Amino acid sequence: MATGGRRGAAAAPLLVAVAALLLGAAGHLYPGEVCPGMDIRNNLTRLHELENCSVIEGHLQILLMFKTRPEDFRDLSFPKLIMITDYLLLFRVYGLESLKDLFPNLTVIRGSRLFFNYALVIFEMVHLKELGLYNLMNITRGSVRIEKNNELCYLATIDWSRILDSVEDNYIVLNKDDNEECGDICPGTAKGKTNCPATVINGQFVERCWTHSHCQKVCPTICKSHGCTAEGLCCHSECLGNCSQPDDPTKCVACRNFYLDGRCVETCPPPYYHFQDWRCVNFSFCQDLHHKCKNSRRQGCHQYVIHNNKCIPECPSGYTMNSSNLLCTPCLGPCPKVCHLLEGEKTIDSVTSAQELRGCTVINGSLIINIRGGNNLAAELEANLGLIEEISGYLKIRRSYALVSLSFFRKLRLIRGETLEIGNYSFYALDNQNLRQLWDWSKHNLTITQGKLFFHYNPKLCLSEIHKMEEVSGTKGRQERNDIALKTNGDQASCENELLKFSYIRTSFDKI
């Protein structure tokens, strides 16, 4: 039985969820670079991206490699990797027998973001014989899940209580170790020597080791999670996991709180800001991140802002960003909400898709409305799209047979046209069989910064309504002859009103 693990408890099935942008060198404390989270699957090609990484700022997932063999891993080693800020997950990587050479110096898994409450997941690794993470000293947050690894031993010899604050939620089941077939031998045991430290858990006094050649490092209890030197002297209180010299914040392997210019500090002093819960960055760093993602459509890219001495992905609820200094300031009234469309555009074809934009005031991208039916549609669209004030790209209304009016965009005031449909149009209306009105132009103002209007096959939309939009939106004169079809717009509506004058002759039985 794995020490510190839980057996036999019912657990939810383990679901495996399925960018080499360097964020800056980590400095003297770390020998390499800070790398983003990685999802490495199918083959070993991307694994080489770990070569210079000291910190993975995010998670590391290595999974679904069915053609790899043990010899493929023999020359692979990433000794610079010290810390993973989120979680480490391995799933069905064939041929991998140990992690001792792959990650010989991995010391800390912070667990800032977890995989279903777990910071370390080893699942269905069919050839893994031992973990071998002999320098792993601290899992700051989260638990361990090690399950269905039929060859995995050296679990009962690990004292997880020396690595985690609590072992109650560890789930370590259905491994070879369960069948008591392992016969784990710690260093020196074969020669009758006791080389590794022994600890007591559940009444068992057991030597602690990761492999037959690597003991588990056990520091004096007084050192807590700070770690200790090879001689057993406690590291500085700002260290986490390990250090090369005692009581020196510049000799830590990793930091308990924050890293700044080669030393570990309790908090980031001005003019620095907390970033990702582990390091200090200056304003320029946060500003660069903001600008890199301002026009990016890459998933996970955030326009970072500053709030409460932190550089964070977005302002919290009730705050909006001051564009001059990136500071989050309290909103006066309802907060603006910028919604970034991942692929640059979004099609609204149902109430469900409209709900995804609920509360958005600025759309960074283009909207395509293609709704053919739905219950209580006008009210639903207004509830979900009615706060949109600005669209950076274009607005396209296409084959939306259920629409009679666009009044559900009740606050839309600006279409920038930074991206144009077919390279020309910022407003595009095609084949809307029941569209009769755009907006009530006596109450609604709309500016279209650039781009043209396109109207074709809107049989109940009168040309007068379209011409009014040209005047109000500032697009009059931009359109070419064929942009607004004269014969297919309003051709099934009563669009022309003329005053009919009647004269009559009164007659009676005795007068003409």
Rank of each mutant, 00 (worst) to 15 (best):
L106A: 00
E49Q: 13
C331N: 10
N308H: 15
V108I: 02
L63C: 04
I62K: 00
L155M: 07
E147I: 15
L106Q: 00
F258D: 04
H212M: 02
R162E: 09
I109Y: 00
A156V: 11
C239Q: 00
P270Q: 08
Y319F: 08
T199E: 08
M65I: 06
P70C: 08
Y304F: 14
V121C: 15
H307M: 11
R279C: 09
E147M: 05
G241R: 03
N138P: 00
N42P: 02
S237D: 10
F91C: 03
V265S: 11
C186G: 01
K217Q: 14
T229Q: 13
C228G: 03
G183Y: 13
N257D: 07
Y273I: 07
C293I: 14
P246G: 11
L50D: 00
S244W: 09
S54N: 04
I158M: 04
G333V: 04
I84A: 01
C286I: 05
L90F: 15
V93P: 00
N42D: 06
I139T: 02
L327M: 13
L47M: 06
P249A: 11
V265R: 14
D169C: 05
S225Q: 06
E57I: 03
P270M: 09
S324F: 12
T199L: 09
N309V: 07
P36M: 14
R46T: 03
S143P: 10
N257G: 06
L63Y: 03
I109A: 00
F115H: 13
Q204C: 03
H307G: 13
A119F: 01
V218P: 02
C219V: 01
T267A: 14
Y94N: 10
N150C: 10
K80M: 10
I201R: 02
C264V: 00
W160S: 00
H226N: 10
C223H: 01
V144I: 06
P79D: 09
S161Q: 07
C209S: 00
Y118M: 02
T157H: 06
G333Y: 08
V218Q: 05
P334Q: 06
I222G: 11
S143H: 12
I172S: 14
S324I: 00
Y272G: 03
A156P: 02
C331W: 15
L47E: 14
V55S: 02
N105F: 13
T157K: 06
R162I: 08
